[in-house]
Write a protein that binds this DNA or RNA. Sequence first.
DNA 1: AGCAATTCTTGACAGTTGTCCAAGAAACTC
DNA 2: GAGTTTCTTGGACAACTGTCAAGAATTGCT
Lengths: 211, 211
Amino acid sequence: MTEVAETKRDRIARRQVDKFEARRTELAVATLHTLADLGYARTSLREIAQNSEFSHGVLHYYFADKRDLITQAVRQYEAVCVTRYDEVVANANTADQLRRGFVDMFFATLASDAPLHRLWYDLRNQSLFEESFRTDVLEIDERREAMIWRVVSRYAELSGGEPATSPTAAYVMLDGVFQRALLCLLSGMDEEIAKLKNELPCVLDLVVAGA
Amino acid sequence: MTEVAETKRDRIARRQVDKFEARRTELAVATLHTLADLGYARTSLREIAQNSEFSHGVLHYYFADKRDLITQAVRQYEAVCVTRYDEVVANANTADQLRRGFVDMFFATLASDAPLHRLWYDLRNQSLFEESFRTDVLEIDERREAMIWRVVSRYAELSGGEPATSPTAAYVMLDGVFQRALLCLLSGMDEEIAKLKNELPCVLDLVVAGA
DNA sequence: AGCAATTCTTGACAGTTGTCCAAGAAACTC
DNA sequence: GAGTTTCTTGGACAACTGTCAAGAATTGCT
């Protein structure tokens, strides 16, 4: 076999692999939507297939089993959701701008991506019971922590203060606020959300001392 | 029918009701254990029955359906878990004692009741998808918030400072730390837990300014 | 002891689940 | 365009689910 033939075969193989991967992510996205709609407990393969343009049998062609599929969906979530505040950080020239931009983005994504967020918390929680998701969940949580830390450290920089906590503490505290806001949103407690929106800047200022 | 007969009948009726209620809570406790073991997604009625001393059929004698049973289990959780720090608050005479007692209790219950805690977060999350649990979840969350606020406000009192946040913010921030600690614990990340234990006093001091 | 009300067990039911497979459809190669 | 590989379908499967009901076992009362 010549070199040309080899590269050709490689190209074909690569194209097939790419196609395979493309379909995998396509199905992973459908899985993500189903999970966001129904939650982990009530997400079945047939339901996922109905949220895609294929029949349920195809899932076992592209994924070893349900766990594999959901793991892939979790990774798909990661691709979407760990750079949410980066633009805000990049565009802010003053501490005030950054704080305002952060709070606005915080509540904007809360409102517009609520199902996706509840899905994340659902899967993170599931990892407390099922070891199989844990590695991916921990990695995503790390990246979310880093995302928040980029905000906090930049805010400290702009405001001439210093972060008062570790990156982890800053993340989990703000994430706690987000979880509560999500619960309030889905429960229709609008006044509570307004309160949280008022207080979030204060929390940010707590995390960055002397701001 | 005489008055005597009536009171007697009442007594009997009351005893039956008490017995009925006693069995209901007994089964609710078994449900709680099952949920703590398996998580909401994998908890079935037969599994619950196996964690009790009865067969699966009895569950529909005492509960209308699965939702009713789990709702009752949630309420059972409440009875156990919303006064955890009250003793610490009552026994502390100085700010330092209170802070130390709080941190110790925080990580003690984390370690000894980890399954119960993950169950709570699981059910709270489930309420983001199923409206039926939401009322109870919100009520329990309120009581947990009050529990934390008793610690924070007392700590402010003893240390001569003032709470720097609302009760809600204080709760969700500390609860965020707890959730992370739980994830670390179940993942065997011992160093991370040690870090959190070191930082928790600082977080408490953040929440109570000028302490 | 005998009767009545209760509590509990067991098995059945219809529906759903994850998984697998045979066969057809489609895409691609030569 | 024939032949091969890849992809997709739809159905079958065994296991499991919540629910219910008939009858056995137990309890409590007189």
